[in-house]
C-alpha cells in the first residue's frame, strides 16, 4: 500500500513551474529520502501534502485521503515539519505541545503524558518552562520535530529536518528518524545526501519539478554501481583547484565532479579511461596530487550523475 501517492502534480508561481508533473509513490512503512538540489520543488511538494499550498493540476493523497483541490485539507493523521519551524515566542515548549495536542483533540490526561514524553524524546525537558523566544535554531528544530509527533502520525513529512543542526544534534535527530521509521512512513527531504544515505530505505530524486528516479536505495546503488574516483590534490595546489575542476568536468569519461577541501570526488563513466585522462592531465598541467583512488559510489555520485544527465539531455 502507498502512504503517499502523487500523480502529475503541477504548481506554478507566476511563470516559474515549481512542480512540472511530479509523480511519486511512497510505500507504507518506508523512510523515503526526497532528494534534489535547491529549488527543485521539494518544499513545494511537502507544502502541498501538508495542505498549505494548492496544486494547479494533478492529484495527491496522503494516508488514503485525497487532497481536495478547492480547500486545503486538515490532516489528523500526518505530522509536518517545515524547513524553518516557527513558534509563538511568548509560549513555552510545554504550552506549545499542549496547544498542538488540543488541536488534535487529545484528552487532557493523555495530552499531558504525551507532552512529557515528547519533551523527553527531543531533549527539551530542562527548558520546558522557558519561553521559546530565547531558543536557538537547534532547539526550535527539535521542538519542531516534537510538534510533528504529538498525534502519533501515520505519515511524517519532514522538510530538511537536520540541515540546521550541528553534527551532534544531526546524529541524534537522524537516529530518532530511524527509530520513527519503524512505526510510521517518513518522507524526508534533504539536499545532504549523506543524511539520506544513512536513514532512508527508499530514495526519490527530483530536479526542476520532475521526479528523475525513485528506487529502493540498495537497488539504486547497484544499478549505478560505477565506482567513483577520489583525487586528493597536493599541497600548494589551492589556487588551481577551481581551474582543475573545470578541466576534469570537461573530460569525456567523467560525468560529475564535486569538491570538498582538497578532495575531488569524481563520478565516472569508465574507471580506467578516467584514471588515464586524469593522470595525463596532471602531467600536462604540472598539477600534483597526493592520492588517486577508486572508491565505492555514494548516493552523492549517483545523484550527480542523474541530475547532470538530465541537464545534458536538454
Amino acid at each position: 500500500m502507498n502512504a503517499i501517492k502523487i500523480e502529475g502534480l503541477v504548481k506554478t508561481y507566476g511563470s516559474v513551474r515549481a512542480l512540472d508533473g511530479l509523480n511519486l509513490e511512497v510505500r507504507s512503512g518506508s523512510v523515503f529520502g526526497f532528494l534534489g538540489p535547491n529549488g527543485a520543488g521539494k518544499t513545494t511538494t511537502l507544502r502541498i501534502l501538508a495542505g498549505l499550498a494548492l496544486p494547479n493540476a494533478g492529484n495527491a493523497s496522503v494516508s488514503g485521503i485525497a487532497l481536495s483541490n478547492t480547500t486545503p485539507a486538515p490532516y489528523a493523521r500526518t505530522g509536518y515539519l517545515p524547513e524553518e519551524p516557527a513558534f509563538y515566542p511568548w509560549m513555552t515548549p510545554r504550552e506549545y505541545l499542549d496547544y498542538v495536542g488540543r488541536i488534535f483533540k487529545i484528552g487532557s490526561k493523555e495530552r499531558s503524558a504525551r507532552v512529557d514524553e515528547l519533551l523527553d524524546v527531543v531533549g527539551l525537558k530542562e527548558v520546558s518552562k522557558r519561553h521559546i523566544g530565547g531558543f536557538s535554531r537547534g532547539m526550535r528544530q527539535r521542538l519542531g520535530i516534537a510538534q510533528a509527533l504529538v498525534n502519533h502520525p501515520e505519515v511524517l513529512l519532514l522538510d530538511e529536518p537536520v540541515s540546521a543542526l550541528d553534527p551532534a544534534g544531526r546524529k541524534e535527530v537522524l537516529e530518532l528518524i530511524e527509530e520513527l521509521g519503524k512505526e510510521c512512513t517518513v518522507l524526508m527531504s534533504s539536499h545532504i545526501l549523506a543524511d539520506v544515505e544513512r536513514v532512508c530505505d527508499t530514495v526519490g530524486i527530483i530536479n526542476k519539478g520532475k521526479l528523475i528516479t525513485q528506487a529502493i536505495k540498495a537497488e539504486l546503488m547497484e544499478k549505478y554501481a560505477i565506482p567513483a574516483l577520489e583525487l586528493v590534490a597536493g599541497n600548494g595546489m589551492a589556487q588551481q583547484i577551481s581551474e582543475w575542476k573545470e578541466r576534469i568536468e570537461r573530460m569525456t569519461s567523467v560525468s560529475g565532479v564535486s569538491i570538498e577541501g582538497y578532495t575531488f570526488r569524481i563520478a565516472v563513466k569508465d574507471v580506467h579511461s578516467a584514471q588515464r585522462e586524469l593522470m595525463q592531465d596532471a602531467i600536462r598541467q604540472n598539477a600534483h596530487f597526493e592520492r588517486l583512488e577508486i572508491v565505492k559510489p555514494s548516493l552523492e555520485d549517483i545523484f550527480m550523475q542523474l541530475v547532470n544527465g538530465v541537464e545534458e539531455k536538454k
Binding site: R47, G51, P72, P74, Y75, Y80, P82, A86, I103
Partner: peptide, 15 residues
C-alpha cells in the same frame, strides 16, 4: 509572515 499560521493550519484546525 513568521510561519506560525502554517504550523497550526497544517493540523486539523479550520481557518
Amino acid at each position: 509572515d513568521k510561519g506560525t499560521a502554517a504550523m497550526t493550519l497544517s493540523k486539523p484546525m479550520t481557518r
